[in-house]
Amino acid sequence: MIPAPFEYVRPSSVAEAVSAIGAAGEDGKILAGGQSLIPVLRLRLAYPTTLVDLGRVAEMQGVRDDGDAIVIGAMTTHHDVMHDPLVAEHAPLIAQATGTIADPQVRHRGTFGGALSHADPAGDLGAVALALGCEFVASGPGGERRIAASEFFHDYLTTALAPDEVLTQVRVPKLGAGWSSHYEKFNRVAQAWSIVGVAALVRRDNGSIAEARIGLTNMGSTPVRAAAVESALAGADVGSVAAAAEHAADGTNPPSDLSGQADYRQHLARVLTKRAVLAAVGS
């Protein structure tokens, strides 16, 4: 199928992008990698009047070191994120989760910031960003602001970004020594979205778990933290991971759809959390 007609704008800087988005108004739409948006346009599920293509905004691409954080440009492709040495060193969880997204061709076009801004709760990066405590940097007519990951996801496909704002970069705090991680994804066929995914970050200290951060994919209308598991794991030894993981679905409200009903997803969250934490601690 063929998308409905639209105007096309291709800014080359963040400033130009912000003004183009403002000019496009409420029926404008930002085109990042397009891997979610273009199928939606083809199926004529959306009729934007203007697409603002961020593909040539060089300052939004690439990963750089910024002291206590690495900064991932929102337009950095999944493929580039997966193969970036800074990401590998400071946030291997991101590289691993990114490698589970869709397929190689989609990862060549799809972008880190595009996926996060799309805010599909079945997307894998939201839970990862939550667990890592990322900061989202947005630019709008009023300038730049930072949004904590915990404040970014508001609802299904809805974020803290204002209609005239654009996500430009994501700051990923460097975790320092002692942290290890794992992303555990469960889906029916290889290229499908997650039925449930679990991002686990664990800091070990003297053999026990000093601190854990758990993000859950597709367990609600936004990615969520498994706070009860995190507290149960604090100070726990590896032998009590399974018991802690039993709390993984506490307070969640996952969807029921073709891939699984809510109670099954809650069960999966518990199983996958156990596996993710155990994998993160290497046992």
Partner: peptide, 23 residues
Amino acid sequence: ATPERVWRAIHGGGKHRAAGGTT
């Protein structure tokens, strides 16, 4: 035999086959 159906079969003691609802 989706994972959900298999899981329900196991945990329903064979009684609880396909999930209700959309599947």
